[in-house]
Design a protein around this nucleic acid. Structure first.
Lengths: 209, 209
DNA sequence: AACCATTAGTTCATAATATGAACCGAATGT
DNA sequence: ACATTCGGTTCATATTATGAACTAATGGTT
């Protein structure tokens, strides 16, 4: 055991770090890249290949990852699905928010969604389609960079006031020409959001939305 | 580090075992009991309290578990939701099976569902409600003991032929008076399933179904 | 109020366990 | 034929995970 490395760069070791490394590994999987070879995956998670291999083996044994039978590349497994679905259903917020969502849709005629902040992304927990034409269909479980969505801005703004600007998304990904990528500009935007209590995002996430 | 213990009882250590322990911990959470105190949780996972605590801390840092702000009990976190949703969407089977499901519903008029085996449980990946009265509503993500469901029997039967009887569910939980709990009887049932190509489960999972 | 039995969380000595460099053989590309 | 990749394994090393034994707080029972 020589170098520390790996895992979201935080100074104090919070809990067992092989576990943190394992989860870091899981977080490498994404919509765009759901399948990974060992070496690549290890590199992406900034882990030693051997270490990554052993972690993956453990995760595989528990069903959290599987291997595509052809490519024999690593993917998220069915265990992850089961766990996520359980987490979703045992989330109080979900059940508490449902009536609110329904009321919102009734009052505004727009699509309403329940979203939470996970790291620097928002996750759509629930959504009800309104009759309006405007509504983007909100797929439950979808993740988006928080800084490029209206709801994300609200959640970022709410999160512990202006002080917490320090631990913002490391790099603000540019998704369209209008995405806010300058940290200072984002901070100003968040101040505005805090002041008026709502946020917008126009063509900052996808062109046309 | 004195005793091995914890984790699904398997002899050869497959990969990093603190990771396996962490996942074992996550698997303790269930529909019926989504919230756990530290001591209870540790006991349920057959882990030392201190160990469980450290593992949980790591999982918390990565968003896989959270603490209910009031009770300050442990629950599955939003990270689990996000990961599960991603796993679900990046699952080829899902997209491949959708048309099949739709066809099934059209042809039979019954509810059709896509289920996979995860350990000794089946997980419902997808489902389409049919117009029939019989259909039990299939909630995506729900897990059931494989030996007590029709689909579960099929999957168990298919899984590597009669030889693999060795690594069957350790203990067959009795869910109703008709649940098959005797391993030998289950094996005979699976032989029958293999022979004829389909399975039934009548009141073996829940009374009335 | 004194008791007992819980709980969550911390400390600390111990060595078991996780670690990574170096290795292998197989594919693949040049 | 050569050079790089790849997935995977080995093995010596000491870092890191571990659990018994502690707090201190809480809640129930007498």
């Amino acid at each position: 055991m020589r170098t520390p490395a790996g895992v979201p760069t935080s100074k104090p070791y919070a809990g067992t770090q092989s576990v943190r490394r394992a989860i870091a590994l899981l977080k490498v999987f994404s919509e765009e890249r759901p399948e990974w070879g060992l070496s690549e995956l290890a590199r992406a998670a900034r882990l030693n290949k051997t270490t990554a291999y052993r972690l993956l083996t453990a995760l595989e044994a528990e069903g959290m990852v599987t291997r595509s039978s052809l490519t024999d590349a690593w993917r998220l497994g069915n265990g992850a699905i089961a766990m996520g679905a359980l987490a979703l259903r045992s989330n109080d917020l979900m059940t508490a928010a449902r009536p609110e969502l329904e009321a919102l849709v009734r009052e505004t005629g727009e699509t309403a969604s329940l979203e939470v902040l996970v790291g620097d992304e928002i996750v759509i927990l629930d959504g009800i389609e309104g009759p309006s034409l405007v509504g983007a269909s909100s797929e439950v479980g979808t993740r988006w960079p928080a800084h490029a969505t209206s709801t994300g801005k609200v959640l970022l703004a709410a999160e512990g006031g202006p002080a917490s600007a320090g631990r913002r998304p490391r790099r603000l990904r540019k998704l369209t020409s209008r995405t806010i990528t300058d940290p200072a500009r984002l901070e100003r935007e968040l101040d505005r959001v805090r002041a008026r209590g709502w946020a917008t995002a126009v063509e900052e996430l996808e062109n046309g939305y």
